[in-house]
Amino acid sequence: MKKIVGVAALSFALILGACSSDNAGEKDDSDFPKKNLEFIAPATPGGGWDATARAIQKILKEEDIVDQSMTVINKPGGNGEVGWQYLSKKDAHTMAIDSSLLITNNLLGQSDLTYEEFTPLATLTTEWISVAVKNGSPYETATDLMEQLKKDPASIKIGIAPGLGNNDHLSFVKAAKTFGVDVTKLNFLVYESGGDVMTSLLGGHVDVATMAVSESSEQHLAGKFKIVAISADERLEELPDVPTWKEEGVDMVFPHWRGILGPPDMTEDEIAYWNEAFGEMVETDSWKELLENNGWEDFYQDSTETTEFLKEQKEMYTELIDESGLQK
């Protein structure tokens, strides 16, 4: 008898537990999500996007924010194109990591996809982009550098990676353009990876390099080269001595953001579900730790804000790419 009571109590507890966790997940009593979720990392395992996707999956699971099981799948290729192409044909149980590449791929003629076809679900993080000069450089500040480029745009070798049209490249183009430099004559040396750019700046094979702050800050702190400007709206805690572009008289803020993209035609309930889930996720300690470890800044915006943000971004990139001289 005791046994039966025990079993009954146990199953009751289990049912209760299951119900309560259901409630935690779906506060607005729709029945979404119904099945396993697919989370697309449009990159190979081991890269930044893959790592982000897997970390998000882990947090959503461990903090009991999403109950359905979630698998990260890798769809690398075409700067994200392959993954987003795949997403465009799926239903609401799929989502993918995205970034400004979604916009620039299209503007550069590398893709027919536009963000308008999809359902932007959230913007999550941003990194700021730094411009650094080698030690012993004649240019002490970003203003010095820009003055020289204004006089002779081809006189300075600028290291970037991993390709033209990415944010490291375009943020520099934007700063230079805002300053009045003829940006089509700039001399970019394109390296395969951020590591290569750093090596060449340390070895003095380029004069200037642009990199994510998370890549360059350690070298700056060690005095191996000097960061002269960052693309953030205000100075960063870990780099109190580095001015922003605004302080250098260049009116520009340039985020390198990452977000989450849903497939076309999601219902309001489904969007609301994710607004809630991501809103909850960005408040967790493990999310904050993830940002901290990677040197990312919190940049959370919900679905509506993200849609608006993407529109602004598209206008900005359209203008920028038109003037950069890049081929389409």
């Binding site: 033209l164 089509t184 001399n187 970019f188 001289g325 890049l326 081929q327």
Partner: peptide
């Protein structure tokens, strides 16, 4: 020889 010309550099 017939590759597209570059606008940059």
């Amino acid at each position: 020889i017939n590759l597209p010309k570059s606008n940059l550099g």
